[in-house]
Simulated assay, not measured.
Amino acid sequence: MSIGNSPEDDRPSEDRIPPMDDRPSVGRALQQARIDAGLTVDEISQSTRVRIPIVHAIEQDDFSRCGGDVYARGHIRTLARAVGVDPEPLLEQYGAEHGSRPAPTPATPLFEAERIRSEPRRPNWTAAMVAAIVAVIAFVGYTAVNGGDDGGDKQQAAEGSTPATSKPANPKPSPTKKPADPKPDPSDSAIAAAPRDKVTVKISAPDGRSWISAKDHNGRILYDGLLEKGQSKTFQDSQKVDLVLGDAGAIQLFVNGKEIEDEFQPGQVERLTYTKGDPEVG
């Protein structure tokens, strides 16, 4: 009987086999890139407007505090750009570890030809017939009246009566021209002319950047991505527009031509829904 190790003990177990993929996790990669860039968590939070607890959680690969897969991807993209690394490999790694999602569809144009094209009106034959009958009656009456007057004038001339001199009709005053309506300033935003039968939402980032997501009433994604400083996006739907603002404090919002005056805090995530009647009066 052998007292040494059996040949089976010399074979490596599954626990002893090193992993094929020795890449660091998404959170660890972001943390190492931040350290290599010489940045603190506070500095990253100030530059990206991502709250400090969320930055700490992401660097520990805890994405539960992001509020969902879409928000986690937006934060990964924002933090990667802030520390100077390409976000796409990290997003692919995140998708492989947490499940992928379909690519967002491009934002719908503000005014599509199909949406603003008016339906052709059918001819109103009843009104046309009534107008024709009225015109015929008026013509017959006018002819009869003028014919009787001509006969009377001829009879008076035959009898030698002097026709009365008719006074010249008073000239009608020329109609006063109405002043032309002032043309709108070409610099005015197109959202001021938003149609009433649709909901129109304009999102601007004048002071900073923020991740945003917009969906129509069918749940179809109109836009999903980062809105850089100075950029703006406009969305339109026949019923409603659902919004998610990753950093509502950096956003300026217009709904149906009116500015939303809500005081959003920096780094605050907001989920909003607007319809054709918004914003409500009062």
Rank of each mutant, 00 (worst) to 15 (best):
M1C: 00
A214W: 06
S161F: 11
T176D: 13
A194L: 00
A190M: 09
E263M: 02
R34T: 05
I17V: 15
R81H: 13
D36N: 14
E43V: 15
V134M: 09
E280L: 12
S189T: 03
S45H: 06
V241M: 04
D153E: 07
E159I: 05
R11E: 08
A250I: 00
I221Q: 11
E280A: 13
A127W: 01
A138C: 04
K229T: 15
R101H: 12
L245N: 07
I17Q: 10
Q93F: 04
I260W: 12
Q156R: 14
I137D: 08
Q252P: 08
Q32P: 00
R51E: 13
G67T: 10
T200Y: 06
T48R: 02
S13R: 11
N5G: 04
Y71R: 15
A132H: 01
Q60M: 03
H75P: 00
S2V: 14
T105K: 09
F264A: 10
N5R: 10
D149Y: 08
V26E: 00
K178W: 00
K215R: 14
D61I: 03
R16N: 10
I251E: 03
S204L: 09
D197N: 15
R209H: 15
S47D: 06
Q60T: 00
A57Q: 12
K229V: 13
A37E: 02
Q46L: 13
I116L: 14
V134E: 07
G148C: 09
K215E: 06
R122M: 10
L253V: 10
S2I: 13
V70K: 04
G74Y: 05
P173Q: 05
S166C: 00
G249N: 09
I133Y: 02
P184G: 02
G84I: 08
D188S: 11
R101K: 12
V50I: 15
R73V: 03
G147C: 03
R51Y: 03
R81C: 06
K229R: 15
L226R: 11
S238L: 13
S238Q: 14
D10M: 06
E261R: 12
K172I: 07
A250F: 02
L90N: 04
D150T: 07
K258N: 04
R117V: 09
H98L: 01
K177F: 07
F235W: 04
T143R: 12
E261N: 14
R122S: 08
A132W: 04
P89K: 03
Q31I: 06
G160I: 02
P173S: 11
I52H: 12
N146E: 08
R121G: 02
L226Q: 11
